[in-house]
Design a protein around this nucleic acid. Structure first.
Lengths: 126, 126
DNA sequence: TAAATAAATGCAACAGTGTTGCATTAAAGA
DNA sequence: TCTTTAATGCAACACTGTTGCATTTATTTA
């Protein structure tokens, strides 16, 4: 694996992701950063984090990518982000649920990844 | 509900969706239509079909919308598309699985919609 | 059958998300 | 301090999806 370097922009992105315990869009991260960086750079950092498995990416039903550091992920099998996500339509946040994704497949299907989102109202918004 | 009119473009879109038994992107539908129509029109038709519950929409992990008529949907509860979808990375198709989505939620969460995709290799591609 | 109504369309422009090429900057090791 | 190359900034781009508005046309009404 390629050697990574420590940069302030990178740390800023990480700090933002750590501060919220939710999955965040590029834009949300971008807005909350305390150093200013280029849009493209933030995208590259987020993708780098994914590759390095520091965060996982999910694509929500709005078609946008969200990035999250979450406790549920630690020590999980190869399939990334193997848990449900919940998008609250009120507070517009996406969180990782502890709930694992379970299913039974038709014969001869192989699952390599999952991207599962439940949409509704979270406990704080009702 | 607003009165709908029968148009050739609309029928062409429906015909395409019926011919394949898979979830199709706007673009795929657009390519396969035998009448030529405007991009925007096809988008409007697809969205209309969704509203009228003739098709259901899912957003795949590529961020794109896919539209499907499927048998699994008929007679289902209010939650639309309440089943898993499978995207095959080999043949690049998305199909509706019969498998229903099951989960248990933390207290006080309400689910209104689901968007769940399993990604891997389908039976025909291994 | 002809006129009236408004649903559906075509066209154009736009917004938003995400990526990429390339020159420049700067982190880390020698 | 010098060298190497990972990381960045900037700009341009591709793509998906939406919207306003004038026009067409399917359907209803007279």
């Amino acid at each position: 694996m390629i050697k990574r370097r420590n940069t302030t922009t990178q740390e800023a992105v990480l700090a933002v992701l750590k501060s919220k315990r939710k999955a965040m869009s590029h834009d949300a991260v971008f807005q909350l950063m305390d150093v200013d960086a280029d849009r493209a750079t933030v995208y590259r950092i987020l993708n780098r984090f994914c590759k390095d498995e520091i965060v996982h990416k999910i694509v929500a039903d709005d078609g946008k990518q969200y990035f999250a550091i979450c406790d549920n992920c630690e020590g999980l099998p190869p399939i990334p982000a193997n848990h449900f996500h919940f998008r609250c339509t009120q507070c517009e946040t996406i969180e990782c649920l502890a709930e694992p994704i379970t299913y039974s497949l038709p014969d001869n299907y192989i699952v390599q990844q999952t991207n599962c989102i439940l949409v509704g109202v979270c406990k704080d918004c009702r």
